[in-house]
């Protein structure tokens, strides 16, 4: 297995043992198939045990896996006729956010997402998927275009967060994110936001004000990175594992909290092990949600989004407490 994570080690060892036995069978012409079948059974059980009981920290590692499908991978496999569009018309073209027009099941849609790279070189070019204001403003421009031409919008969220840099601050990182939040709330077209890896803070939410919020099974969505929370709370970023557990950031947690609408299942071992299967599940989910949303008119869509976010939050009335 390529790109294995620390907790996958026992499984990897078992699988390489099976591989060895296979080779042995071939080379020495000794029939070990009984043994192999037994071990394969065991490997299957072990895989189910490992992947069926992932801790929040293990999910974080899965969500950050370098081989996980990126926005462009997903657009390529989910859509046809994709035309990528560039630039915010104000400052530049941010390669940490990609977007354009395409067809999903024949329907014209606008697709936008954070774009991470798969290796260091690509990641440097993509700024590790951490946008500057011009990235958010490009996204806004494309969403306004979608609104004008009545195209549904599909957003893919996958970022550690908005880039914390000097130029980003000078050009209004806060304003760019804030404006997206307000404008996304007012568009009269269906918006589906899907967290496909890391959903890091405001930089993620800037593509997240959807009628539906979906999360892939091994993705995370958080107000602050586990490392950041650990540094603030315990003055030790090494406690990230503990923070990941306290913060409730996994798809399963957020589903329980009622923040997201649906979890998109991933193949055993994560989306990076089988893109086709991951895309198949995502397609089903988008189809279903888009069909439902396309029955609403533009006012209903705006209202639906408002009600959704207005309902988020947990608080008590004083009279209920005492």
């Amino acid at each position: 297995m390529a790109g294995e994570l620390p907790f996958e080690k026992p499984l990897v060892e078992l699988q390489s043992k099976i591989e060895e036995l296979r080779k042995f069978t071939e080379e020495k012409q000794i029939d070990l198939s009984d043994e192999i079948v037994k071990l394969e059974c065991k490997a299957k059980e072990l895989a189910e045990e490992i992947y069926g009981n992932l801790t929040p920290w293990q999910r974080v590692q899965m969500a950050r896996h370098p081989e996980r499908p990126t926005t462009l991978d997903l657009i390529k496999d989910l859509c046809t006729d994709f035309v990528e569009l560039h630039g915010d018309r104000l400052f530049g073209d941010d390669s940490a956010i990609v977007g354009g027009v395409a067809r999903f099941n024949g329907i014209p849609v606008t697709v936008i997402g954070h774009q991470k790279g798969k290796d260091t070189k690509e990641n440097i070019a993509r700024n590790f998927g951490m946008p500057h204001p011009e990235g958010y403003r490009k996204a806004l421009r494309l969403m306004q275009q979608a609104d004008k031409f009545n195209r549904p919008i599909i957003c893919f969220i996958n970022t550690q967060g908005a880039y914390p840099g000097m130029a980003a601050e000078e050009r209004g990182q806060s304003e760019a994110i804030a404006r997206n939040l307000r404008e996304m709330a007012s568009f009269g077209v269906p918006i589906i936001s899907i967290v496909i890896g890391e959903g890091g803070s405001g930089g993620a939410l800037a593509l997240g004000v959807g009628n539906r919020i979906l999360m892939m099974e091994n993705s995370i969505y958080s107000v602050i990175s586990p490392e950041g929370a650990a540094a603030l709370l315990w003055k030790d970023s090494g406690q990230a594992q503990r923070a990941a557990e306290s913060l409730k950031i996994t798809a399963q947690d957020l589903n329980e909290l009622g923040i997201i609408d649906e979890i998109i299942a991933e193949p055993l071992g994560g989306a990076h092990r089988n893109y086709a299967l991951a895309v198949q599940e995502m397609r089903k989910s988008i189809e279903k949600n888009l069909t439902e949303l396309r029955n609403l008119n533009s006012d209903e869509l705006v209202e639906d989004r408002y009600d959704k976010f207005k309902a988020m939050g947990k608080y008590n009335l004083l009279s209920e407490i005492s």
């Binding site: 804030a178 107000v223 923040i259």
Partner: peptide, 8 residues
Amino acid sequence: GVLSLMQM
């Protein structure tokens, strides 16, 4: 957690 994020 994310409930705070959603207040934005």
